[in-house]
Simulated assay, not measured.
Amino acid sequence: MNTNKRLTKGLLAALVLGLAGCGGFNGVDEAQYDVSRTHPISVLPDVATLNIDVPSGQPGLAAADRAAIADFAASYRARGHGPLTVSTPSGSPNAASATAVLGDVRDTLAEGGVAGDALAYTPYSASSADRSAPLILSFKHYVAKAGTCGDWSKASSGDYKNTLPPNFGCATQNNLAAMIADPADLLTPRDMTPADADRRNTVLDKYRQGESTATTRSDQDSGAVSKVSQ
């Protein structure tokens, strides 16, 4: 056997051994390296609540209560699902006062962008001895949570199949779960916003008249082509 044939066989053997080292990734068991499988994010429903104390005889909402309701309304608009429920105490000495401030609650929520058709009202039984039974605001939202990180059980030395460690991708999944605005987006996509009918009609009218349908831009518009290199 001449030298060229021996070199050729040697190269083929090295190539086969190299491919064999990666062959584990073709198996069913060792192909599951997607972090969504190894470190899945759980999305579960939860209830956000805000208690507003209304002592007997209180004429209306305090400034601090209005601010708290405004923040609660912002949270509802960002990640709330279903109605925002306003629960008033029944049977407590302050029940009449709690009912009397409902108008202030509605006005504050409306100022925060929560329309009246998004509200639901319900009473709840309160103790006759509770003079400060709260008025409770609540809505359903979703919470995302990934698994606990820190699994360093696999020894990196001697791993001839070059597989990923069990902790791989865990931090990324936890960061995603913490940062996502509305975890419900991980369950199903949001509905599309309505089309801009006025703009659509404007474009169609220009098209029919043979005019340019592009938006007029000036040098001050963001995204204009730079003239530095010209």
Rank of each mutant, 00 (worst) to 15 (best):
V28G: 05
E211Y: 13
C149G: 05
V47L: 15
L164N: 06
K227R: 14
A64E: 13
A224M: 13
P189C: 00
G27T: 14
Y76K: 03
N51T: 10
P166G: 00
P89F: 03
T163G: 03
A177N: 04
F72L: 09
R37P: 04
T122S: 13
N4S: 10
S128W: 07
N174C: 01
G223I: 05
G150D: 01
D107H: 15
K161A: 03
V28P: 08
P194S: 13
L11H: 10
A110K: 15
D71E: 08
D198R: 14
A48M: 13
A63I: 12
V114L: 00
I41Y: 13
G116W: 12
N201H: 08
S36W: 15
A144L: 07
A110N: 14
A115I: 03
V101F: 11
H141E: 08
S125F: 10
N26Y: 15
V35T: 10
A224P: 03
N2L: 09
G27Q: 05
G27L: 06
A31Y: 14
S212R: 11
L187W: 04
N2T: 11
K154F: 04
V54T: 00
V225N: 10
A73Q: 07
A120W: 01
D46A: 14
S92N: 11
L204G: 00
A67E: 09
S218C: 05
I41V: 11
K206G: 04
V47C: 08
D159W: 13
R66I: 06
H141N: 11
R66Q: 09
I52F: 12
P83K: 09
A64S: 15
G169C: 08
A96Y: 02
P165V: 00
L109M: 08
A95P: 02
W152L: 11
N51K: 07
G60T: 00
A197F: 15
L44A: 11
